[in-house]
Simulated assay, not measured.
Amino acid sequence: MDHSKHIPMTDAELTAQNLKGANVYGPGDENIGDISHLHGTPPNAQVVLDVGGFLGIGAKTVALPLSSLNFMRDESGTAHATTTMTKDQLKNLPEHTD
Rank of each mutant, 00 (worst) to 15 (best):
G40R: 02
L14A: 11
T61A: 11
T10E: 14
G33W: 06
K87N: 02
S4A: 14
T82S: 04
R73S: 07
L49M: 10
M72F: 09
V62S: 01
Q17M: 13
P8M: 07
I7H: 11
S68M: 04
K91D: 08
A16P: 03
T10G: 03
P65Y: 02
G52T: 07
G52W: 03
T82R: 10
Q17A: 15
N23L: 11
L49G: 04
E95D: 12
T86R: 07
V48G: 04
I7F: 06
K60M: 02
P27I: 09
K87D: 03
Q46R: 10
D50F: 03
A59L: 06
A81G: 13
F54V: 14
L66G: 00
D11P: 06
R73T: 14
D29E: 11
S36W: 05
P8Y: 05
T78Y: 01
V24D: 01
A12K: 10
M1G: 14
T97K: 14
E75D: 11
L49V: 05
S67P: 01
F54T: 14
P43S: 04
K20E: 14
A81I: 01
T10L: 13
L90W: 02
A12D: 14
D11T: 09
I32K: 03
I35V: 14
G77W: 05
V51Q: 04
M9Y: 05
G56Y: 06
G33E: 09
A63D: 08
K60V: 00
G56D: 09
L93Q: 12
E13V: 03
S76G: 02
P27Q: 11
A22F: 04
V24K: 01
K87V: 08
D34E: 10
L55V: 03
G77T: 06
L66R: 01
K20G: 13
G33I: 05
A45Q: 01
A45F: 01
A45L: 05
T83F: 02
S4H: 09
H80Q: 09
D74I: 06
E13H: 04
E13F: 06
T84Y: 08
P8E: 08
N92L: 10
A12I: 11
G26L: 11
H6A: 15
N70V: 06
A12V: 12
D98V: 12
D50W: 10
E30W: 03
T10H: 12
K87F: 01
S4M: 09
D88P: 00
